[in-house]
Design a protein around this nucleic acid. Structure first.
Lengths: 216, 216
DNA sequence: TATACTTCGATTATCGATAATCGGTAAACG
DNA sequence: CGTTTACCGATTATCGATAATCGAAGTATA
């Protein structure tokens, strides 16, 4: 068995990633290289490499000689990312239909977890399991590029923000809307799952629905 | 008016990007940091930053202490990227329908250019204008995230590879298939344009078509 | 001959130091 | 006063040097 200790740079990337996503570093906040380097007992160079990586992932923005900040995501961009996310999830579900037929245990587990979180009004836990639910479907598509892109889009989405807009009381309703997706995938009906996900995301993100779909 | 000269790092990124895309650096080829630094009269640090950026863009692959290589794209991955590309272009075309109505001059110009290239059997020129054609549509969607992601996917696709598989003689046929898309967008019918693009890409990339669509 | 061990050049990973640039503040000027 | 200029501390951008690691080639051993 192989255990490869992560390089300094990878550790820094992980560190920054976590802090950006959990909101420790807030949108617009400046990330000062030497400050991070000192905090982690390293030098400036690997920190800068990490920042370049995060920059390509669109999580931070850099201006020459002015430094790097956590990217601020406008409502406009939030909506854009939801549009893209819908398209990706549709593709994912369609492809997943073939692979998941009859094997939806993991989905059921996550569904149970986020329904419990909904009852407890635990937004953070809800978010975690909801995202995991969707990730499982995308993974099942077997398309690794899709998974990789979906992940960056979901990061962009800052899911929590949308969830907070939804409000704790509607979490249960939101969660329940996921259940038919499980049924569709159990039957191997990717098309139907895709349609359900589409409506689900559109509805709860207050997007306008696409022109009415023809149903089979 | 503002003129910002590019930083060393940005110049290096541009340099590497060009050489990877035009095939000077071939898939699997090792990119040696000091070698690049010497060639460009800089030091190792900015080169490494550029490589981290390209790594996040999935153009290169890095292994600790073993260096960075141009990523090799398997046929499998090529197919994956085509699937994703179809999904993105469908979304793009649907959204573009609303914005492009009656304003398809730029599309017509590019179409004329790639049809000429097809007649001349100039694969490189064909590719350039074909991609530009699609980019115009995605841009017109008004969704910047979509554009950004589409670009990385098309890079991944290394379009040329697919085109070479198609062969010089079918370029004209391939090109002509684009023309109905222009008509659909001129009418503001994004849905139809999306469907046409879907079939177009699937057909010429030898993908299996999705289960038959319902046509209006 | 085959296998394990050693050495060594090449390259990556990281560091510490220096140069370039920014934003703000205060002096100089009208 | 209001505006411009000169400076200063903070930070980024880049460099040159060193440490860590790799892999290939050689050496020893059985």
């Amino acid at each position: 068995m192989e255990f490869k200790r992560a390089s300094t740079r990878e550790q820094i990337t992980q560190f920054l990633l976590e802090r950006i996503l959990d909101g420790t570093y807030k949108p617009g906040e400046r990330l000062i290289e030497m400050q991070i380097a000192n905090e982690l007992n390293t030098s400036q160079a690997p920190v800068r490499e990490s920042l370049r990586y995060l920059e390509a992932m669109r999580l931070v923005v850099t201006e020459p000689y002015k430094g790097t900040r956590v990217r601020e995501v406008s409502n406009r961009e939030l909506e854009e990312s939801s549009q893209v996310r819908v398209a990706l999830e549709e593709l994912g579900a369609e492809l997943a239909g073939q692979h998941m037929k009859g094997q939806v245990e993991r989905l059921e587990i996550e569904a149970r977890l986020f329904m419990k979180a909904a009852k407890d009004k635990d937004v953070r836990a809800y978010s975690q399991h909801d995202i995991e639910f969707h990730r499982i479907i995308i993974e099942a598509s077997g398309n690794q590029l899709l998974l990789s892109i979906w992940e960056t889009v979901v990061l962009e989405n800052r899911f929590l923000r949308t969830l907070n807009r939804i409000g704790k009381d509607q979490l249960t309703e939101f969660g329940e809307a996921h259940l038919p997706v499980i049924d569709a995938l159990r039957d191997g009906d990717g098309k139907k799952a895709a349609m359900l996900l589409n409506h689900l995301i559109c509805k709860f993100h207050f997007l306008k629905e696409p022109e009415s779909e023809v149903q089979k």
